[in-house]
Design a protein around this nucleic acid. Structure first.
Length: 914
RNA sequence: GGGCGGUUAGCUCAGUGGUAGAGCCCCGGUUUUACACACCGGUUGUCGCAGGUUCGAACCCUGCACCGCCCACCA
C-alpha cells in the first residue's frame, strides 16, 4: 500500500503527521510522561478531544478510490444496547481505524432504527398510551408523568410525536455509550430511519419499483399477527415449540350414504367451520377410491370434497388432512393449487366473525343446526372457540376419544406473543422470486468474512417461497406514498393508484392531498383516500446505503461512496437485513450495495446460549466500560474473530486491561529517563542507525510481525492481528526490554563500541518499536495508545500511517538482519536457562553469576558474541566463557550469598538442550 | 429431512502436512530503579470416534457421534 502517495494529499493538520516520513520534530518528553500512568479517565479525556478536533470527520474531497465507506447497522432504539452490540460494533471500529490509518477516507456514519414496532411498543409502555387513528390531533396533549393503569388513547399524529420525543432521548444515550466505547464514527453524519431523509429515500425507491412493476398489491392470504394486528413477512417468522393436541374428528361419507366416516386429526379444531376440503396423497390406496367424492363436516354439515395432493403425507395422522382457510402455509398452497373457495372465519383481532350458514359460500346440509353450533363460537377468541368447539364435538359424538396432547413447532412473528394466523387482506409486495438467480450471483460477488457465511444467504434465497410482503397495518413508520380514487359509491380503485411527484417526497397520504383534489374530498364519494398502511421497517432499513449516501439529494456524495466498501452485521440478520439490502440495490442500481460483508458472531453466556436481552441488561454495557475500561472491553470483543460466537468473559476483559496498563508503563519506561532526547532519533526514517545485534534482531522480528498483522487485517481477521501483536508485545517487554535495560541505562560494562553508541542504538530501537506497536494497537486500544502518543508526538495516533516493514527496518538500512534475529533468539534462550537454573536453586534472580560456561555449536559463535554484553548486563553475569562445539549447555558458577552457610556448593551445573 | 459451523490442557481458544501451543486457573518463588494491575519458574493432553492417503496427519479424504446455528416440515 503506497503510503507516500497519501502525504501528497494531506489536507489538514491532523492528517498524516507521520514521523516515519515527515520531519515532524519529536516533542520533548520532559514532564509529559506521567509519574503513575493510569487508564482511569482516558475515555473522558480523549472522546471530547477527538470530537473537537474532528479526528474522525469524513473528507468529502477525497477521491472515490481512497474512500472506505461503512454501512453501519442502525441499532433499534427500543430501550438499551446490550453486550452483543458492544461486541460487534467494536469489530467494525477496529476495521474502520485500520483503514483510516492505511490512508483511507473512512465514511463511517451511525444510524438509529427508530422506525417500527419496537418503538411503538416502547412508547405505549413508557407513556401509557395507545394509538387510535380515528381520533383527531390534540395539539395540547401532554403524556402523564407516569403511565396510568388504563392506557390513554391518542391520535396518530400525537402518537408519532411521542415516538419522536422518546427516540431522541434514546439516541442521546446510545451516542454517549458509543463515544465511551471509542467508536470512531463521524458524529456529524447520524441518521434515523424515521427521519424525513429516510422517508424520502424509502418512498422514492418504492415509487421507482412501482413504476417498473417490481412492486404490486394483492388481496391474498398473508401471515398475520393478531396482537399487533399487522401483516408480517416470511423473514420475520420464527418457530416455537408449543403444547397442542390432536383432535380426531369424524367426517361422514355422505355420498356413499353408508353411514361410514372418515377420520382426520387436527390441532386446530376451531377452524373446522373454515374447512373447504380434505386432502390425501394421490398414491394413498386407502383414499384413492374416495378422491372427488364429497364428505360432510362435523357440526356444520358442510359438503366438502376429498382431493389428492402430493404434499399430503400418508404417514401423518390418519393420512387425511383437513384444509381450512387458513390454518397454515400448507393450507395456502393447497387452496391455491386445488382452486378451493375461501371460508374466512378469523378476524384481524383474532376472534371469529359472524357467519350466515346456508348462504353463498357457506353451504350446509343442515343450515339451522350449523348456525346453532356456530353462534356459540362467533365473536369468541380463537382459544375460547377451541375449548367451546371441543365441547360441541364431544356432545355430538363426532370427536373420537379425548384430545391427545403433543408438543409441536408453531410459527410466530419473532416479536409476537401468540401464534401467527393467516388472514386474507390487501397487501403490498416487492417482487423477489423472479430475481433469485441474480441475487445468488450477487451473493457470490460479495466478499464474505468469514466466507462460509455465504451459505446462509444462499440457503435463504433458495428457500424463498413468495414475494416480500412490505405493508404493515401500523402507525409509526414510512407511509406508502399512494392515494386511491373513490368511485361514486365511495369504493377505492386500487388498480390505478394516484402517485405524488418525486419532488413532493416525503409525503403522508393521510394529510397530503393528490393533485387535482381538495382536502375536502378526502373519504368522499368521487374523492380520494390515502393508503392507510405503512412500510415494514426492513423496507426502509434495506436502503441504508442509499440513505447515508445521499441518494437523490447529493449526487456528489453518492458517487463518492456508493457502492460502499463494507456491511458489518451479525449472522442472525443475513436473511433480513443483508438479503433485503442486496435485493434493493439490485432492483434499483443493478449492483451490489457493498464489496464486503463482515459477519459477527453472537455473545454467548457461560452456558453457551445466546446472551439474552435480559442478561444483557443485567450486565449493562456502560457498567462494563466503567468497570474494566473501554480498551479492555474492546480487547475482549476483538478477540472474538469474524463469525465466531464468543463467550461473555470478564476474565478476558481483565487481560485486556492488563495489556493496556502494560502498554502505558512500558511506554513510560521507553520515553522517560534522564537520557538527553538528542540521543533518540527524531524520527524513525531519519533516525540514528541501530547497531547492536539484539536491537537489530528485535526490529527484524517486528518487521515480520508488521507484515503478518497487515495481511491479517487486510483479510478482516482483526482477532488474529490482535493476538499476534499482543504476543509480540509481551515478549518484547519480558525479554527484549529486560535484556537491553542495562545498556540503555548506560552501564559501562555492556557498551558496544562505546557506551554512548550502544545506548543510542537501544534508544532508537526502543522508540521505533514503541512507535510501531502503538500504531498496531491503535485500532484496538484507542485510548491508551492515544494517551501515550500524546506524551511525545503531535496529532492523533489515529491518523498516523499504518506501519510497513520498511518503516521498521529504516534504522537497519532497510534490510532485515537474520543473523541478528538468531542472536536475539540465543539471548532469549540463554536468559530463560539462567532464570530457570536460578529458580531451581532457589536463589534470587539478582544473584551474580561469577562465571557462565556456555558450550555452543560452532555456527552460533558469531551470533552469541554479538549479544554477549547485553546478556551479561541483564543476567548479572561477570564472565561468559564460550566453548565451541557443544549443544548449548549452560553451566553457572554463582556468587555465594553473603550469609550463605558454610559448605553450600557454589558451582551449579545445568543443561540446556540445543 | 437439507445446509453451515464446531469438537485441541480444568476453562477460553490459537494452531491447514514435519518434536502439541497461548492466556486464564493452579502450585512455588521474587517487592529487580516502567509496571505487584508486575516478574520468574513449574504442573497440565488418547488433538471427539473409526477407517483411509502419506516417509510423516490435530491438519488432507471417507464414514460416524455429539454440540450449536440456519432452513424446510410441523394434519
Amino acid at each position: 500500500m503506497g503510503k507516500s502517495a497519501l502525504r501528497i494529499e494531506k489536507t489538514g493538520p491532523t492528517q498524516y503527521d507521520h514521523p516515519l516520513m515527515s520531519d515532524t520534530t519529536a516533542t520533548p518528553t520532559g514532564g509529559r510522561v506521567p509519574e503513575k500512568p493510569a487508564l482511569e479517565g482516558l475515555e473522558a479525556k480523549w472522546s471530547p478531544r477527538w470530537e473537537t478536533e474532528g479526528v474522525y470527520r469524513f473528507d468529502r474531497n477525497s477521491p472515490r478510490d481512497r474512500v472506505y465507506a461503512i454501512d453501519t447497522p442502525p441499532p433499534t432504539v427500543s430501550g438499551s444496547l446490550h453486550v452483543g452490540h458492544v461486541f460487534s460494533y467494536t469489530h467494525t471500529d477496529v476495521i474502520a481505524r485500520y483503514q483510516r490509518m492505511c490512508g483511507k477516507a473512512v465514511f463511517y456514519p451511525m444510524g438509529w432504527d427508530d422506525n417500527g414496532l419496537p418503538t411503538e411498543r416502547r412508547v405505549q409502555n413508557y407513556y401509557g398510551v395507545r394509538c387510535d387513528p380515528s381520533l383527531p390531533f390534540d395539539p395540547t396533549f401532554e403524556p402523564p408523568d407516569k403511565p396510568g393503569k388504563q392506557a390513554i388513547s391518542v391520535s396518530r399524529p400525537n402518537f408519532i410525536a411521542l415516538c419522536e420525543r422518546l427516540t431522541v432521548e434514546d439516541e442521546k444515550a446510545f451516542e454517549a455509550l458509543w463515544r465511551q466505547l471509542g467508536l470512531s464514527v463521524d458524529w456529524s453524519m447520524t441518521y434515523a430511519t424515521i427521519s424525513r431523509a429516510s422517508q424520502r429515500v424509502s418512498q422514492q425507491a418504492f415509487l421507482n419499483l412501482l413504476r417498473k412493476d417490481r412492486a404490486y398489491q394483492l388481496e391474498a392470504p398473508t401471515l398475520w399477527d393478531i396482537d399487533f394486528r399487522t401483516a408480517v413477512a416470511q423473514a420475520e417468522l420464527e418457530d416455537r415449540e408449543q403444547p397442542g393436541a390432536y383432535h380426531k374428528l369424524q367426517f361422514s361419507r355422505s355420498e356413499a350414504g353408508d353411514g361410514g366416516v372418515i377420520e382426520i386429526e387436527t390441532t386446530r379444531p376451531e377452524l373446522l367451520p373454515a374447512c373447504v376440503a380434505l386432502v390425501a396423497h394421490p398414491d394413498d390406496e386407502r383414499y384413492q377410491p374416495l378422491f372427488g367424492t364429497l364428505v360432510t363436516t362435523p357440526l356444520f354439515k358442510a359438503p366438502v370434497p376429498i382431493l389428492a395432493h402430493p404434499l399430503a403425507s400418508p404417514d401423518k395422522g390418519t393420512g387425511v388432512a383437513m384444509i381450512c382457510t387458513f390454518g397454515d402455509l400448507t393450507d395456502v398452497i393447497w387452496w391455491r393449487e386445488l382452486s378451493l373457495p375461501v371460508r374466512a372465519i378469523v378476524l384481524p383481532n383474532g376472534t371469529l366473525r359472524q357467519v350466515a350458514w346456508g348462504g353463498a359460500g357457506w353451504e350446509s346440509r343442515d343450515a339451522a343446526s350449523a348456525q346453532a353450533a356456530y353462534d356459540q363460537l362467533a365473536s369468541l377468541s380463537l382459544t375460547k372457540a377451541r375449548a367451546r368447539i371441543v365441547e360441541l364435538l364431544r356432545a355430538s359424538s363426532e370427536m373420537v376419544g379425548e384430545p391427545r396432547p403433543i408438543t409441536h413447532a408453531v410459527k410466530f412473528y419473532e416479536k409476537g406473543d401468540r401464534p401467527l394466523e393467516i388472514i386474507t387482506s390487501r397487501q403490498w409486495f416487492i417482487r423477489t422470486l423472479p430475481f433469485r438467480e441474480q441475487l445468488l450471483e450477487r451473493g457470490r460477488e460479495l466478499q464474505w468474512h468469514p466466507p462460509y457465511m455465504r451459505a446462509r444467504f444462499e440457503n435463504w434465497v433458495g428457500g424463498l417461497n413468495g414475494d416480500w410482503c412490505v405493508s404493515r397495518q401500523r402507525f409509526f413508520g414510512v407511509p406508502f406514498p399512494v392515494w386511491y380514487r373513490l368511485d361514486a359509491n365511495g369504493q377505492p380503485d386500487y388498480a390505478s393508484p394516484l402517485l405524488p411527484d418525486d419532488a413532493q417526497l416525503p409525503m403522508d397520504p393521510s394529510t397530503d392531498v393528490p393533485a387535482g383534489y381538495t382536502a375536502a374530498q378526502r373519504g368522499q364519494a368521487n374523492g380520494f383516500m390515502g393508503d392507510p398502511d405503512i412500510m415494514d421497517t426492513w423496507a426502509t432499513s434495506s436502503l441504508t446505503p442509499q440513505i447515508v449516501s445521499g441518494w437523490g439529494v447529493d449526487p456528489a456524495l453518492f458517487a463518492q461512496v456508493f457502492p460502499m466498501a463494507l456491511r458489518p452485521q451479525a449472522h442472525d440478520i443475513i436473511r433480513t437485513w443483508l438479503f433485503s439490502t442486496v435485493l434493493r440495490a439490485e432492483l434499483e442500481h443493478d449492483s451490489l450495495p457493498w464489496a464486503h460483508a463482515a459477519i459477527s458472531g453472537w455473545v454467548l453466556d457461560p452456558d453457551r446460549k445466546k446472551m439474552s436481552k435480559s442478561k444483557g441488561n443485567v450486565v449493562t454495557p456502560a457498567g462494563l466500560l466503567d468497570e474494566h475500561g473501554s480498551d479492555a472491553v474492546r480487547y475482549w470483543a476483538a478477540s472474538g474473530g469474524p463469525g465466531v460466537d464468543t463467550a461473555f468473559d470478564p476474565a478476558q476483559m481483565k487481560v485486556g486491561r492488563r495489556l493496556a496498563i502494560k502498554l502505558l508503563n512500558a511506554s513510560k519506561f521507553i520515553l522517560a529517563g534522564d537520557l538527553p532526547l538528542e540521543a533518540a532519533p527524531r524520527s524513525l526514517a531519519g533516525g540514528q542507525p541501530v547497531t547492536s545485534a539484539l536491537d537489530r534482531g528485535m526490529l527484524t522480528n517486528l518487521a515480520v510481525l508488521v507484515a503478518d498483522v497487515t495481511g491479517a487485517l487486510d483479510d478482516y481477521d482483526y482477532a488474529k492481528a490482535l493476538q499476534r501483536t499482543e504476543a509480540f508485545f509481551w515478549d518484547f517487554c519480558d525479554n527484549y526490554v529486560e535484556l537491553v535495560k542495562a545498556r540503555r541505562y548506560g552501564d559501562a560494562k555492556v557498551g558496544g563500541a562505546t557506551v554512548a553508541e550502544g545506548q543510542a542504538s537501544a534508544q532508537a530501537a526502543l522508540r521505533t518499536a514503541l512507535e510501531t506497536l502503538l500504531r498496531l494497537f491503535a485500532p484496538y486500544l484507542p485510548f491508551a495508545t492515544e494517551e501515550v502518543w500524546s506524551w511525545w508526538r503531535e496529532g492523533s495516533v489515529h491518523h498516523a500511517a499504518w506501519p510497513t516493514p520498511a518503516d521498521v527496518l529504516a534504522g537497519l538500512g532497510g534490510l532485515p538482519d537474520s543473523e541478528a534475529q538468531r542472536g536475539y533468539e540465543r539471548a532469549q534462550t540463554l536468559s530463560a536457562e539462567v532464570r530457570r537454573q536460578k529458580a531451581a536453586q532457589k536463589v534470587s534472580q539478582k544473584t551474580r553469576v561469577t562465571t557462565l560456561r556456555w558450550a555452543v555449536p560452532a555456527e552460533w559463535i558469531t551470533e552469541v558474541r554479538a549479544i554477549e554484553a547485553d546478556a551479561k548486563g541483564a543476567l548479572h553475569i561477570d564472565t561468559i566463557e564460550l566453548t565451541e562445539g557443544g549443544n548449548g549447555e549452560v553451566t553457572l558458577t554463582l556468587e555465594p550469598p553473603p550469609e550463605a552457610p558454610a559448605g553450600s556448593p557454589p558451582d551449579v551445573p545445568g543443561r540446556t538442550p540445543a
